[in-house]
């Protein structure tokens, strides 16, 4: 897991608010002790009827096959804390989500595995998403460094907390090594606690 400075890939428009983690990966697929293989369950019930026939859902459209950047509305990833959600997106080939806002736990879980969550105004997301429909082959290019999204020659600014941006650029989004380095301070803090 190295630095994540740029993400480039074709887009998948899922322009709706409050896409919850049960939609991203239904609970029955959490019956597992490893994340291996969870990629195939991403948006499973949005993609298939119970008899397995495909639904009318962007991920099923051939033009969006191989897309790696999700475009969504407000509060993406709301609901449960299941890291299975970003893990399934990651393993299904997505490297970034652009949304109007993100649920907090989802955002943190995504950052830890280097999945970029970029916040943009709805109007800009709508513009890109409309452009996508005509130009599904055009790449969306996110520069984490510059905080810009580039699509068909036009640049849009995006927002990301400075802490997350630094972590992605430096490749330090997996915090464990640093947490372990502070071991002495942790011991002291534990001793100081009144309980």
């Amino acid at each position: 897991m190295g630095p994540v400075k740029t993400v480039a890939g074709r887009g998948l428009p899922l322009i709706i608010d409050d896409i919850d983690t049960d939609r991203i990966v239904p609970a029955r697929f959490l019956r597992c002790v490893t994340f291996d293989g969870i990629g195939k369950f991403a948006f499973y019930d949005e993609r298939y009827y119970s008899d397995g026939t495909p639904k009318n859902f962007p991920m099923n459209e051939p033009v969006y096959e191989g897309a790696s950047v999700i475009l969504a509305g407000k509060n993406f990833g709301c609901g449960s804390s299941r890291e299975h959600a970003p893990q399934s997106l990651r393993r299904a080939g997505f490297n970034a989500v652009i949304a109007e806002s993100f649920a907090e736990i989802f955002f943190g879980n995504s950052l830890t595995i280097g999945l970029v969550c970029a916040t943009m105004p709805g109007s800009a997301i709508a513009e890109i998403s409309n452009g996508l429909k005509e130009n599904t082959e055009s790449e969306i290019i996110l520069s984490v460094d510059a905080c810009t999204v580039e699509f068909r020659g036009k640049k849009y600014p995006f927002r990301i907390p400075e802490t997350a941006r630094n972590a992605l650029i430096n490749g330090s989004y997996d915090l464990l090594a640093e947490l372990l380095r502070n071991n002495k301070k942790v011991t002291e803090a534990a001793k100081m606690l009144p309980y």
Binding site: F35, E83, H84, N109, V186
Partner: peptide, 21 residues
């Protein structure tokens, strides 16, 4: 009290701490 993901569960198991804002 707050919910965390599995990578952070690992962090807490290993260090009893977590990185948060």
């Amino acid at each position: 009290a707050f919910g965390i993901g599995t990578s952070q569960v690992r962090d807490v198991l290993a260090t009893q701490t977590v990185g948060v804002s």
